[in-house]
Design a protein around this nucleic acid. Structure first.
Lengths: 216, 216
DNA sequence: ATATTTTTTTAGCCTAGACTAAAAATAAGT
DNA sequence: ACTTATTTTTAGTCTAGGCTAAAAAAATAT
């Protein structure tokens, strides 16, 4: 059984792992908003518990067990988000902060019940995959909108960020998951895109926004 | 904002207050399963925060503010229990332990939504009143079954204990809230009662059980 | 009224998990 | 290659909230 602090570290490791699975301690500190020395301490404890591979002055890597444990917390988070949206009527921009708390509850029954009531969903309201009960993640290969070319049609599948600011930005522009958009123009200078979708709606999206939108 | 530990102390004070509102520190320690010295410490902190009236070597008493804060945590607990039973299909014997965790979540939206979805219930699945948003408790005057006389008919309104053992005991005997029972015999020696209810079902209930059953 | 038991307080210790400040190792720039 | 900047580690503090053991007060029994 892990403490809330430990679970948050696990989650940060899950979210920060790059292609080669390496995680720089600096980034953990930034993500969790704690100082580096705290991170070092916790990573040593994690190494003792067999959750990470750790060598002095090197970036850290989750062990298989660490990956599984991390995925199980993410599972609780994403199931909760889905439940809050689908069964309680919350907007997708509200659920992240509530789920951040509920994810730390130790009650397998509760999450199994959510899963069942929701009909065993595979993605959460932000399009992120929900790990299964063994911690396995269905890998999906989305590209970001900013990789699309002029004339290309793309369907919004997920967002890279779940901050309420960003989701509100999408809400006011009616950019919901499932929406298909067509790239009309790309500004070469700053990478911003003009898109058209729905009933003649057009928007200019900055590069930053396009990076955050995952499409198929 | 209170810590989990503080919230648990508040809840224990709420549950242990007797007629004259006095609470012996000993009982707090037993209820929370912590040592007396820890209780003394916390009560001093509570006194500083204006949550209790405290004098050395005397039993403690919640201030008005303390009562309100305590009731608001109990509100979260009882709304959660009701939600788990009514909307997620849990048995009343399962929900206490889950609600003990969810009650510590800081998300007014979540509990307001539960309240709304449930249609603003006034009692939880165990018949205990749910405090309102200002911390006011609807006082109900139930007597316990053991105070009834032979021939008296009484309707089960609430239970004094929510332990799963006790609730399972009631489940197997189909003694649910709302059931009306008639007292057939009272054993003068040990206070046990023979009751009849439903379609000719009879049971012998010990004094201890009768004390725990609240009726009208 | 005194002795005994129970309850409460005090004093000091421990752990988790943060912090700061300084030292050491690595990475980057010229 | 050497200097500078960045990242990581070490060492030592702090707070919340437990703990034990001993001392003090209150309650109970003789």
């Amino acid at each position: 059984m892990y403490s809330v602090a430990e679970e948050n570290y696990l989650k940060s490791l899950f979210n920060l792992a790059n292609e080669d699975d390496l995680i720089h301690l600096k980034h953990i500190g930034e993500w969790l908003d704690v100082k580096m020395s705290s991170v070092t301490n916790m990573m040593k404890r994690f190494a003792d518990k067999g959750l990470v591979h750790y060598e002095n002055y090197k970036p850290v890597r989750l062990t298989d067990r660490g990956k599984r444990e991390a995925a199980l917390i993410v599972r609780k988070h994403r199931l909760t988000e889905m439940y809050l949206v689908e069964k309680m009527g919350f907007g997708w921009e509200k659920v992240h902060t509530i789920a951040e708390q509920i994810e730390h509850i130790h009650a397998p029954d509760l999450f199994d019940k959510m899963d069942e009531i929701l009909g065993f969903p595979t993605v959460d309201p932000h399009g992120s995959p929900i790990p299964d009960k063994d911690g396995n993640i269905m890998e999906v290969q989305h590209k970001s909108l900013s990789e699309c070319e002029i004339g290309e049609k793309a369907t919004l599948m997920a967002v890279r960020q779940s901050s309420s600011d960003f989701l509100n930005y999408l809400n006011v522009r009616k950019l919901y998951l499932g929406q298909t958009v067509e790239v009309k123009e790309i500004e070469p200078f700053d990478g911003s895109m003009k898109i058209i979708y729905g009933t003649d709606q057009t928007e200019i999206l900055s590069k930053k926004v396009c990076d955050m939108l995952l499409v198929r």
